[in-house]
């Protein structure tokens, strides 16, 4: 290649393919719009009245702005008012579902992260015979597809008398997941051994090291894992659906399904339904807004390793 050709290339690559770049940004823009617009549509519909929706309004702003739908799904509208506004008139109480989701997700997150951390410490920092064998059992557990454990676990929870209880929903994932143990072990391994030995010489115990050294030094991955576990538990549907039979233990996802099933087939309460989905979605969107960077950065690790 001549010098002239090379320099032409270098000049060219400083501004590579303006058309390609425009196309690329257009593609990205379209993807962004498709990603975001359904959220806007949820809000717009929830703030519209059913009457306006049924008159065929396709206004991009809320049609006949009102918040009756939220009153309806929180059960603070009278049955008659609800029916007048296109609701089913059945009592529906999303405060209750919100509370249940909060209890289940908190129990699962606190239990799973703490007990998995304990196990991860024993697998990374304690010396004992059989460690590798037991750890490989946990790794094996990583391979079992969730579908496979649902029916037997249902039978077990039923025999324990925990059907239709929040503890019954929480229990199977409250003690550990193989992934959580695996994830935390990776980080515990990276805490320098010297620090721990120094602490032992200063009279600390191993269990003391776990609480005063390992846990604080791993607070970032523990926070990430907690957020991910909370979100996964909040969004879970299949397992809570099997265990819940009444409002005692219905979480938001199950409550949404019930609400959708109760709403009249011929004239669904669209604005109520969208208000209900918003109530289920908003806590996760807020959590995401607060920890987006943490969650986005964690994905590479969890997927590839």
């Amino acid at each position: 290649m001549t010098a002239a050709a090379v320099s032409a290339h270098t000049v060219g690559s400083a501004k590579p393919f303006p058309i390609g770049k425009v196309l690329a940004w257009t593609f990205m823009g379209i993807i962004m719009v498709i990603t975001i617009v359904p959220f806007y549509w949820m809000i717009r519909t929830a703030l519209s009245s059913n009457a306006a929706l049924y008159s065929g309004s396709s206004s991009l702003l809320p049609a006949n702005f009102n918040v009756g739908s939220f009153a309806r799904v929180f059960g603070i509208q009278t049955g008659e008012a609800a029916i007048a506004q296109g609701g089913s008139g059945q009592s529906i109480d999303f405060w209750r579902y919100l509370g249940n989701s909060l209890v289940v997700a908190s129990l699962v997150t606190a239990g799973q992260v703490f007990f998995s951390a304990c196990a991860a410490y024993a697998f990374s920092r304690l010396k004992w015979r059989g460690r590798d064998v037991v750890y490989s059992l946990f790794l094996g557990g990583l391979m079992v597809p969730a579908i496979f454990t649902f029916l037997p676990n249902f039978v077990l929870i039923k025999n324990l008398g925990l059907i239709d209880s929040l503890l019954g929903i929480s229990l199977p994932t409250m003690l550990m997941t193989p992934f959580a143990v695996f994830f935390l072990r990776q980080f515990f391994m990276n805490v320098p051994v010297e620090l721990e030995e120094a602490a032992l010489l200063d009279g600390s115990s191993k269990i003391g090291n776990f609480f005063r050294l390992i846990l604080p030094m791993s607070s970032a991955p523990i926070a990430t894992l907690s957020v991910l576990t909370f979100i996964a538990s909040w969004n879970d549907y299949f397992w809570p659906l099997m265990v819940s039979y009444s409002d005692n233990s219905r979480v938001l996802t199950v409550g949404l399904g019930v609400f959708k099933a109760q709403t009249p087939q011929t004239g669904p309460d669209w604005s109520g339904l969208m208000a209900a989905t918003l109530i289920a979605a908003i806590p996760m969107l807020v959590l995401f807004a607060l920890s987006a960077k943490r969650i986005v950065n964690s994905i590479g690790f969890s997927g590839i390793k």
């Binding site: 993807i31 909040w234 549907y237 996802t253 949404l256 289920a280 996760m284 969107l285 959590l287």
Partner: peptide, 12 residues
């Protein structure tokens, strides 16, 4: 932004 839909449940 691209990850936002993943944060809501399948049901939503």
């Amino acid at each position: 932004l691209i990850l936002t839909p993943y944060l809501v449940s399948n049901v939503v």
